[in-house]
């Protein structure tokens, strides 16, 4: 059984002008046990909405989200609470991810305490072990978040997410708010924890190099849809969808020689509004190779080599 199984997920928000904002508009993906799936895309593509729907922080407008076989869509409060013991989340901003008026020990121990899994000395021991597991000192449990740096706070957030030993970890831009050198520490920690616990991970990021570093498979989102889903190496060495190609070309690589030799794939214009997505292929307004068919006919999912692509021309 897959740890996560999302089928035909749609999440629409009420829009200002009447038309709903189709933040996520028909997304299907699955994550096998122990697998890390990367979800990349630019701001507004719906990747964070998918991650929130995965842990039940947003309810789907349509479609199904199953964690370990349990349906989240329309689930009761008790079911949701039970699922969240199996699916935990790491947020982008470590500063606002921790209650400033709670010690970090209380924060890390809270999932265990409120679910009645541990208390007193046993809770203290478990919290200490969790803090040590993420590279912090157990005797710092009595300190408050402001006494820690950004990287350390993100470690605390990770420790809290690990407290219930989840089967699925959803990481929503976990290193975007961190400094370059701290980013490496957190990425190393995530890779290490994953190897040790074998949990499945949904890793949401806008940074293609980071996603490549930690993920086994990668899904590329554009305007509420997945346009390409492929094993990591296939996606990075032979991207099929023109948007994937453009994204890869746009990543500034920290190497002047390769970076300046790289062919430019200029994308024209801006991302259209998700309240009013273009007909046909949603990418056609910016696509360098779009033909008439792309403007009218929506491309179906099809397998091209190891990848699945939604493009008429891939």
């Amino acid at each position: 059984m897959n740890t996560l199984e999302i089928t035909g997920l749609k999440v629409h928000f009420p829009g200002r002008g009447g038309a709903p904002v189709r933040a996520v508009d028909g997304v299907s993906l699955s994550i096998a046990a122990g697998e890390t799936l990367g979800l990349v895309g630019e701001s507004g593509c719906g990747k964070s909405t998918v991650s929130n729907a995965t842990v039940g922080l947003l309810s789907p407008t349509e479609g199904s989200v199953k964690v370990l076989g349990t349906e989240l869509a329309g689930a009761s409060r008790e079911t949701l609470r039970a699922i969240r013991a199996k699916a935990q989340m790491v947020f982008q901003d470590p500063v606002t991810s921790l209650n400033p008026r709670m010690t970090i020990g209380e924060a890390v121990g809270e999932p265990l305490l409120v679910r009645g899994l541990a208390r007193g000395a046993a809770l203290r021991d478990q919290v200490g072990a969790l803090l040590e597991e993420v590279g912090l000192r157990a005797d710092h449990a009595g300190r408050y978040p402001h006494q820690f740096s950004g990287g350390q706070r993100q470690r605390i957030v990770i420790a809290r997410a690990l407290a219930l030993r989840p089967a699925l970890l959803v990481c929503d831009e976990p290193v975007s708010a961190l400094d370059v050198s701290v980013r490496a520490q957190i990425l190393n920690l995530l890779v290490e924890l994953q190897a040790r616990h074998g949990m499945s991970t949904l890793f949401v990021s806008h940074d293609l190099a980071v996603v490549r570093h930690v993920c086994d498979r990668v899904a590329v989102m554009y305007l509420g849809r997945i346009v390409e889903l492929a094993p990591r190496d296939a996606l990075y060495s032979a991207p099929r969808h023109p948007y994937t190609k453009a994204l890869l070309a746009a990543v500034p690589e920290p190497d002047p020689v390769t970076q300046r030799a790289k062919p430019r794939v200029p994308l024209e214009g801006e991302i259209p509004s998700p309240a009013n997505p273009p007909p046909g292929c949603r990418f056609h307004t910016r696509c360098p190779i779009a033909v008439d068919r792309c403007r009218s006919e929506e491309p179906a999912w099809r397998a091209v080599g190891a990848a699945s692509v939604a493009c008429h021309l891939a």
Partner: peptide
């Protein structure tokens, strides 16, 4: 704020979230 989402994820009920997470802040 994310820490309220995190409290929900932890399994806190509304009373605990209001009393321990929102009121002090």
């Amino acid at each position: 704020l994310p820490y309220i989402k995190a409290a929900e994820m932890a399994g806190c009920g509304a009373t605990r979230i209001l009393w321990r997470h929102i009121l002090p802040n």
